[in-house]
Structure formats: C-alpha cells, structure tokens
Simulated assay, not measured.
Amino acid sequence: MKKTPAPTPPKAPLGAADAKRRKAGLLKKAARLGATVVAARVAADTGKKGVIGLIAGAGAKRLIMRYPVGAMVVTGAYLAGKLYEAKREADRKMATKLLTDASARPILIDEARAARKKAG
C-alpha cells in the first residue's frame, strides 16, 4: 500500500497580511542598516582599535536591534556626542581666531612706492 503525500494548502493571493509582512521586512532591513552604521561609528569613535572597538560596536548594534528604547538611547547619545564635539570645535576656532593689529597706521600704496623710489 502506497502512502499518499499530505495535501498542501493552496497559495493565497497577495493580501493585506502579505503586504504587512513585506513592510515589516523592509523596516527590519532599514533598522539593520541603521544599526550597522551607528555600530560602526561607535566602534570607530571609541578611540580603541581592534577588539574593544569591535565589542563596543557589536554591543551597540545588539542593543539597537533588540530594544526600541535602546535604539533611541544609543543613537541619541551618539548624536548628542557628535553635536557636543562640533560645538567645542567651533568654540575653539572662534577663540583662536587671529585678531588684526589695529595699532599700526596703514600704509597707502602711493606712499610705499614713493618711499621705494627715495630709497632706491
């Protein structure tokens, strides 16, 4: 006696459930991409090369992918740190901006040419 294979359920046409599942897949892919980018930046900004940076990046990616609140915290902290560094750099540039020496009287071109003719 031969065994007959179990009947397979018929494929349903694309409906709302399939579209929702597809959107969730795109959202998950976008989240993975974002998590990878942030994790790579965190790993690079730790200042440590090699294993410690890799562990920091992997931990950040896991936290982002696993917990939505963790994603907001890690990403927010990373962006806040970047803004703080940019502000510090801008303040440093403003403080070191060279000031012109206003104590000397400017020399006009005609006076300089006349002085050169006299000397030479």
Score class of each variant (00 low, 15 high):
residue 67 Y to V: 12
residue 7 P to G: 05
residue 102 A to C: 12
residue 68 P to L: 05
residue 29 K to G: 15
residue 26 L to R: 07
residue 109 I to Y: 02
residue 110 D to R: 15
residue 6 A to E: 15
residue 43 A to S: 05
residue 19 A to E: 09
residue 72 M to K: 12
residue 45 D to K: 02
residue 85 E to K: 12
residue 4 T to Y: 12
residue 94 M to E: 15
residue 5 P to F: 09
residue 34 G to L: 07
residue 1 M to S: 11
residue 22 R to Q: 05
residue 72 M to H: 15
residue 16 A to P: 04
residue 27 L to S: 06
residue 14 L to P: 07
residue 118 K to P: 00
residue 108 L to M: 13
residue 92 R to C: 07
residue 104 A to N: 14
residue 97 K to T: 11
residue 116 R to P: 04
residue 21 R to Q: 15
residue 120 G to Q: 10
residue 78 Y to Q: 09
residue 63 L to F: 13
residue 53 G to Q: 05
residue 36 T to F: 12
residue 44 A to L: 13
residue 106 P to A: 02
residue 62 R to K: 12
residue 43 A to K: 01
residue 7 P to V: 04
residue 106 P to T: 00
residue 38 V to D: 00
residue 51 V to A: 15
residue 89 E to P: 01
residue 53 G to K: 03
residue 31 A to M: 15
residue 76 G to R: 00
residue 60 A to V: 02
residue 7 P to Y: 02
residue 71 A to V: 04
residue 85 E to T: 10
residue 107 I to T: 11
residue 114 A to G: 05
residue 86 A to V: 00
residue 1 M to T: 12
residue 39 A to K: 01
residue 42 V to C: 04
residue 112 A to Q: 05
residue 62 R to V: 13
residue 49 K to E: 09
residue 37 V to W: 07
residue 33 L to M: 15
residue 2 K to H: 04
residue 58 A to F: 03
residue 49 K to W: 13
residue 18 D to F: 14
residue 7 P to F: 03
residue 23 K to E: 04
residue 118 K to D: 07
residue 7 P to Q: 08
residue 56 A to N: 06
residue 89 E to V: 07
residue 74 V to C: 11
residue 111 E to C: 06
residue 82 K to N: 04
residue 6 A to R: 12
residue 41 R to C: 07
residue 78 Y to D: 10
residue 94 M to C: 14
residue 114 A to T: 11
residue 101 D to T: 05
residue 107 I to W: 10
residue 65 M to Y: 06
residue 105 R to P: 08
residue 16 A to W: 13
residue 75 T to Q: 01
